[in-house]
């Protein structure tokens, strides 16, 4: 059944769109990730103009994060104060990210920037995850469980203690400079605006390793921040470039909601290390696909800019 998408300005099969939503929803449910980093490239490969893909995906991530954040909120897994600081950073970051996005769109480099951002961030995060999970799988095979890593905060975080504007985050049991979460939030905001992702794949490791937050509040707080930052990104893209396709977002969402339910169940059957190794391979696959587009000679050197408004 074809459906004309009013903002993307092309017709797509409804079942294909819902199916894409369902597959990405399944994977994100299984791995516990937002799925933006899979959905945006998938939309671009399917022929949606990159700018529309990025802006529409922001809109979908808002919805996808709400249900997750609500679940974490109910069991007290959200540090609202930390979330607030991360949102403040995210607001500034997404504002500048959207400006950069609009500027690069006018000079014709937005596709390049999207690809480069994907290659750099997915490549590094994917590699780190792969190395870490392969190491734990090996250790598990050798017969002893890896000891829970106790980070010596005093030594590692010496430079962090010197930063000004210290704040107390009770829920996270931290007393750290507000500049750190502000900077992390800012980076995530930029990525949300230019890559069409929630940014959890950067934020979650940064919260654990850089801020030293306890893991039980990390995911909930991250989702809480993502709701607000992607909502703001959606607004910015709507006003700056009119590239948010509500119809496309709703279709993707309806598929993703159902897919995620099955994904969560499938994820429970696999051990954690293997799950992370699989996720790492998937992340790297998207990175390689994007990277090949940059280094292989294109079929046609010429292209026509889409949407000459």
């Amino acid at each position: 059944m074809p459906l004309y998408l009013p903002i993307a300005e092309l017709s797509m099969n409804v079942f294909l769109v819902i199916g894409m939503g369902a597959i990405v929803g399944f994977l994100s449910g299984m791995f516990g990730v937002g799925g933006g980093f899979l959905m945006t490239p998938l939309l671009i490969f399917a022929g949606i103009p990159p700018a529309v893909a990025v802006a529409t995906e922001s809109n979908e991530i808002t919805a996808a994060s709400v249900s997750g954040a609500l679940a974490h909120m109910r069991r007290g897994g959200v540090d609202f104060k930390m979330g607030g600081v991360l949102i403040a950073g995210g607001a500034v970051g997404s504002f500048f990210g959207a400006q950069l996005f609009t500027y690069l769109k006018t000079i014709g480099q937005v596709d390049l920037m999207i690809s480069l951002a994907y290659v750099v961030f997915l490549g590094s995060v994917g590699l780190l995850m792969l190395v870490e999970s392969v190491r734990s799988i090996r250790k598990a095979r050798q017969g002893f469980a890896p000891p829970p890593r106790r980070r010596r905060k005093e030594g590692v975080a010496a430079w962090k203690d010197k930063l000004p504007f210290k704040m107390r985050f009770r829920k996270s049991r931290l007393y750290i400079s507000a500049l750190l979460p502000l900077a992390i939030g800012g980076l995530v905001g930029v990525l949300a605006a230019i890559m069409g992702v929630g940014g959890g794949f950067i934020m979650v490791p940064a919260m654990i390793y850089l801020l030293g937050m306890p893991t039980n509040v990390v995911v909930g707080t991250s989702l809480f921040q993502i709701i607000f930052v992607t909502a703001l990104t959606t607004m910015l893209h709507s006003v700056n470039t009119q590239t948010v396709d509500m119809v496309l977002a709703l279709l993707l969402l309806s598929g993703a909601v159902v897919g995620a339910q099955f994904g969560v169940r499938a994820g429970m059957k696999l051990p954690g290390e293997q799950l992370r190794a699989l996720l790492a391979i998937m992340v790297l696959a998207v990175c390689i696909k994007m990277g090949l587009g940059l280094i292989l000679e294109p079929d046609d050197l010429y292209s026509v800019a889409i949407g000459g408004h």
Binding site: T62, A63, T234, M235, V244, M246, A249, L250
Partner: peptide, 22 residues
Amino acid sequence: FLYGLTAVFIALGAGWLAGVLG
């Protein structure tokens, strides 16, 4: 502006609904 706001509220509503149904 209003379009963006509508898109955001639809997303919030849909996400909440999905959470309740899930």
